[in-house]
């Protein structure tokens, strides 16, 4: 080493654990159907800003992938206890044919991704009136 600035050399105390970001995490979801038939999918993606979330529908499969950004305070800080990191989230669901793929809406706030999957008009329950003659 030719670097003369000795005092900048940091020796990390203890073990350096592998970063969690090296693998994919399965995010937790809640799925429920509203009375109007719209299916709501709530996905926990803590640390992922909206621009890091990718939602696709391909061949009837809905995939959610997201990359979390967890800023560590820097080298001047020692990692006293670390239990989560910059995870990448991935989860896929098979969509029912009743879902109108064109009308899927997504919003994200506080690390919670909300997907609204409305039913296609043709799949909605329709009450058929009996005409009296």
């Amino acid at each position: 080493m030719t670097d003369k600035s000795d005092k900048n050399v940091k020796v990390s105390a203890g073990r350096v654990e592998p970063r969690h970001s090296e693998s994919t995490v399965t995010p937790l979801v809640d799925i429920y159907e509203q009375q109007d038939g719209t299916v709501i999918v709530l996905t926990e993606v803590p640390g992922a800003p909206a621009e890091n979330i990718d939602i696709r529908v391909e061949k009837g499969v809905l995939t959610i992938s997201a990359q979390a950004v967890v800023e560590e305070p820097g080298d001047a800080y020692s990692r006293t206890y670390v239990s989560f990191g910059e995870a990448s989230y991935f989860r896929a669901f098979a969509l029912s044919d009743e879902i109108d793929r064109e009308k899927i809406e997504a919003s994200c706030s506080d690390g919670l991704l909300t997907l609204r999957l409305p039913k296609a008009a043709s799949a909605q329950t329709r009450k058929i009136e009996i005409k009296s003659e």
Partner: peptide
């Protein structure tokens, strides 16, 4: 691995502590 790596769940949120 996937089971082990589940996050954010339940009522015991994970924490990180850094000391400067």
């Amino acid at each position: 691995q996937q089971e082990y790596q589940q996050v954010g769940g339940g009522v015991y949120p994970p924490v990180n502590v850094f000391s400067g």
